[in-house]
């Protein structure tokens, strides 16, 4: 064998020659045979029924987890990437990026800044310009700030075949082959706040908590337990406390949360630490939401009070 053919065989790894790691060709993180921008939802749905095909949102998450699939189904032309606001609701297209959601003035105002707070810690601006709201909600990830935040609001998802379903029900549904079209947030009267704890900036949250103070109930959505977010509603004992006694109310709710919450351990934190943290974040988030609530007009006589300017960007 000549020197050059031995070298070629060495470099290409042919005939049992093992390449040392330095020379080995870099493996693609994700392998896709075909990229397909669909023209109709039905086309997307049909393609998605095949096991080898996948719908892609921003594809940031899939790139980390999936090894290979056949067709990447791009919904850009058939699913909205915009946020529409009307008197009753926000309709957020599933292809909307996390950054566009974070910067939407109407949502920012309606949620007392809570949505921005829930998103601003997710990696970086360049990341949030790619990752989509649809991918985040469809994924129903345990660590998800996005799911935790939306569960605290009166949120629904529009599914192509499944129709409109409450997000709480959707979060418990098994994964199927439907298509998520919109995330719909009803503009009910409520004050919101969001709190999370991370071991280091931009890491996944150790625990996340969104509080929603409504005229007739107070609830918390707690995520990254590390299992997916769950809702805890303030019980009768807590609700009997006058809400103007903010500290007392928040402390009582924190006690309830610590007693009720189901938490687990992972590399980021132990279950016991999370339980303590749940009490702390619950208290802080409810305090913030109660303060926001106090600053709002007592009685809403005009639906316009709930109207926000919307459409404009705050970033």
């Amino acid at each position: 064998m000549t020197k050059s053919s031995r070298r070629k065989r060495f470099l290409t790894g042919e005939n049992g020659f093992r390449l040392p790691p330095m020379v080995k060709r870099r493996e693609k993180l994700i392998k896709i045979k075909r990229y397909w921008k669909v023209e109709t939802l039905e086309e997307a749905y049909e393609l998605n029924q095949k096991r080898a095909n996948r719908i892609i949102g921003g594809m940031v998450w899939m790139k980390m987890g999936e090894k290979q699939f056949h067709t990447a189904i791009d919904l850009s032309d058939v699913v909205s990437s915009e946020i529409v606001e009307n008197e009753e609701e926000f309709i957020i297209g599933a292809m909307t990026t996390l950054r566009d959601l974070e910067c939407h003035e109407g949502i920012h105002k309606y949620t007392d800044g809570a949505v921005k707070e829930s998103l601003r810690h997710i990696v970086g601006v360049q990341f949030r310009n790619v990752a989509t709201v649809g991918g985040s909600i469809w994924g129903r990830f345990g660590f998800s700030d996005v799911l935790t935040m939306f569960l605290a609001m009166d949120t629904y998802v529009d599914l192509y075949k499944g129709g409109r379903v409450s997000l709480e029900a959707f979060s418990k549904m098994p994964y199927d082959k439907d298509i998520l079209l919109n995330i719909v947030v009803k503009k009910n009267t409520m004050s919101l706040a969001y709190e999370s704890m991370r071991n280091t900036k931009t890491d996944f949250p150790v625990l996340a908590c969104a509080a929603s103070v409504r005229p007739d109930e107070v609830l918390l959505s707690i995520g990254a337990r590390p299992q997916k977010a769950v809702i805890i509603r303030a019980n009768d004992t807590v609700m009997k406390i006058d809400r103007s006694e903010q500290e007392e109310f928040a402390r009582a709710l924190a006690v309830q949360v610590k007693a009720e919450i189901s938490v687990g351990s992972n590399m980021r934190a132990s279950a016991e630490y999370r339980r303590q943290l749940a009490g702390v974040l619950a208290r802080r988030a409810v305090m913030k939401a109660l303060v926001a609530d106090e600053q709002k007009p007592m009685v809403i006589t005009d639906t316009d009070t709930l109207q926000t300017k919307g459409g404009e960007q705050i970033c």
Binding site: L29, I32, Y35, K37, I56, G58, M59, V60, K63, M64, A72, D74, S76, R99, V123, G124, V125, Q126, F127, N129, V130, T202
Partner: peptide, 29 residues
């Protein structure tokens, strides 16, 4: 990093910064 964490691969797509390691070239059509 190629795991969407370091920002080294940042480019502007339609004027917005994005991670080129985490987006298919096809999306820039």
């Amino acid at each position: 990093c190629e795991t969407a964490n370091c920002g080294l691969c940042t480019v502007l797509l339609e004027g917005k910064p994005v991670l080129s390691c985490s987006i298919l070239a096809a999306k820039a059509e």
